[in-house]
Nucleic acid binder design. Structure first.
Lengths: 221, 221, 221, 221
DNA sequence: GATGAATGAGCTTTCATTCAT
DNA sequence: CATGAATGAAAGCTCATTCAT
């Protein structure tokens, strides 16, 4: 038995163990920072508190992260990874049922479920944290990917699919964000609002099937 | 009598001058703070910099504002005042032409023009500044007023006007905000996007004229 | 009637009037400062507040007083004047009845009544205000005068009258001060305490009539 | 086993060393603050100066003390601890010789020796520092303890022991304070003054052995 | 003389980061 | 590698004092 175990073990178990420990430390730090952010907002995030909550020394934090921003980067990474996973999953489903109602349903459902997971953290990350240009670019990258996929799915159904995809994606994102961010101020349950959003997007896409993008309409006419 | 009146008259101008000077200082402070906010974001806003940019001493800043937050309050005030002015103007126009296209046109046009005036400041104020509960309540108040007016205008045309008003107002706000905040990432000119938004909202409202609010639709069906 | 009024007026009524107004301003400033001191303690005393409470501008305060300390000086002056008045009055009484009980009675009664007039101000002045050496010297001067007079009165009755006077004056001052400063923590009414103090001082003075000053007694013998 | 123990042993000293270093920093801060207070009075006490005098950075000051007041608390603590130690020691002595002269001797000797250790600091602490209610309560607590013990010791000898204890304790405290605080203005050596104080307190206590507390005597009779 | 707007040195406190142990 | 004591730049704010009007 020891032999077989040894045969499965990597060549340098010590380093593995070290790496595993290191990874655990990194995870603890990122998790602690995410918790603080969710609970106390951007203003409550400071490196000494992160270290304490993660159960490590402040020195160790700087052993693994060059500065505070890098920790936020890591949080953002995890956040975006979940978004990308949802995106991949949605893309698969789209291959099965590429009709308009399905596209809209996946879009609305996807954003709502994305925002439902730790809404407080999401809120802080998207409307309080002063993200660096780099960080902002990464968020925009995910948005671009989503628009790309939705545009491809819309292509058989509507003209100017990229423009329409941008509109529906941004709308679905913004509204589901708003609902989860301040739950008060909603005139109906979130489910009803989601259904209305679905209806709006579908009505729009059905309306523009063969049309060119609308020419600008001056507001006061 | 005229002579004696004339001899006493100068007093007023002196006080006026004093008040004018004080008002100029207050304005300079608020203006400087708004500039810093627009240029450098929330993190760049500090009282010493405000004083320097306003060309006054730090003491003068605290002569007119009890603390840093009060300066932000003043900026927010000015901001909300413009919103309220637009709202009042829009409400007037609605009385003249209360049809659906006019409602949507005013909504989209109003938000676009609101965001066009110093979009960077708007961006910081709405997505980076840690507003106090009071400040947040005031912003929400303006939003509620807009929804109220739109709902009243929609009442003759659609069922459940409050729900629909909330949806279209939030959508118009969020999208026009997005366009002006990061101008890159738009697949078409802002005017085209606005026209598309207009089309989406109109399609939605025409679609739901007599309908009840949609029942929830599970995303993957 | 106007004539008689004029005949009583000084030669330069304008200057008188000015001086009177100036004196009123000075008084208002000192009075305001004393009130603030009594109500809010040393930490609450600042020149802008003094000006506001006195109903004059901060500029006027500096017209009459070179700096903040001078205002405190003036308060102290008024305070010491009352002490000196009491002292003069007490000295007169001593000439009538120069026996031991009368001396002690005047001493205790004098300090109690001195402290009874605005005890809060007295408290701040004597135990919170960082008096300048000059100010401190003036307070000490009054104390020295009192000791001088008491020593003279005690001279026919006891040996080493100056030493004894110092002891009884300091004791009477310290205790009556304590009673009025923190009224809680007293085991009996102030009147009873005063009578006990009287008894203590009298017992001491009767005890030392012909004695030399006590030789030092090591504490633990 | 000894070998392995020895190899692990060094760890402790390291932590010890760290704690010792931290303790040294704390001590340096408190010591520096006490010096500043003694030399320059309350007005000279500021956190930057404390840090400089302690030879540490301002950050270290706030590493160990939550705010400026906590440093004063620490100074007060040390001060009161010495007082409490003297009190405990005096209480023991009283059990051996509970006669009146011993009580008075311990009282006078105790206060004199308490005040002899850094009289300037004592002066600032007791008559310039704006103590918080908490701090004031602690000072009063020590005074109450002393009165309690003296009252118990006096009980076999005099009536109304609590009233008499209050009087003698406050007198001993106030006078020894005065002598050490401004050494000038004393007509005789401190030792002579202490002996006189002793005589006064003893005369009083002998005088009131079986008496009720004196009825109030109007000052001018 | 009177006014009060303006000044700025100086205070308390925070927190990202470093480095001796 | 881990620790946590130490650092110090920088922030918010106060208040005695000055000076143009």
């Amino acid at each position: 038995m020891p032999a077989s175990t040894a045969s499965k073990a990597p060549r340098r178990p010590v380093r593995r163990a070290r790496q595993a420990r290191a990874q655990a430390t990194v995870d603890a730090i990122v998790e602690a920072a995410a918790q603080i952010l969710a609970e106390g907002g951007w203003g409550a995030l400071n490196t000494n508190l992160i270290a304490r909550r993660a159960g490590v020394s402040i020195g160790s934090v700087y052993e693994y992260f060059p500065n505070k921003g890098a920790i936020v980067d890591a949080i953002l990474d995890a956040h975006l990874s979940r978004g990308e996973a949802l995106l991949a999953q949605g893309a698969l489903r789209l291959q099965e049922r590429p009709d308009l109602p399905a596209i809209v349903g996946l879009l609305v459902g996807g954003f709502v479920s994305l925002h439902q997971d730790d809404p407080r953290l999401h809120r802080v990350l998207s409307s309080e944290a002063p993200l660096s240009p780099d960080q902002r670019a990464r968020v925009e990258g995910l948005r671009a990917s989503i628009i790309q996929i939705v545009a491809a799915a819309l292509a058989p159904h509507v003209e100017a699919p990229h423009i329409r995809a941008t509109l529906v994606v941004d709308t679905a994102e913004a509204l589901s964000h708003r609902w989860l961010v301040d739950e008060a101020g909603l005139p109906a349950s979130e489910a009803v609002m989601a259904a209305e959003l679905h209806r709006m997007l579908e009505a729009y896409l059905l309306d523009v099937r063969g049309a060119n993008p609308a020419r600008p309409i001056p507001p006061s006419s």
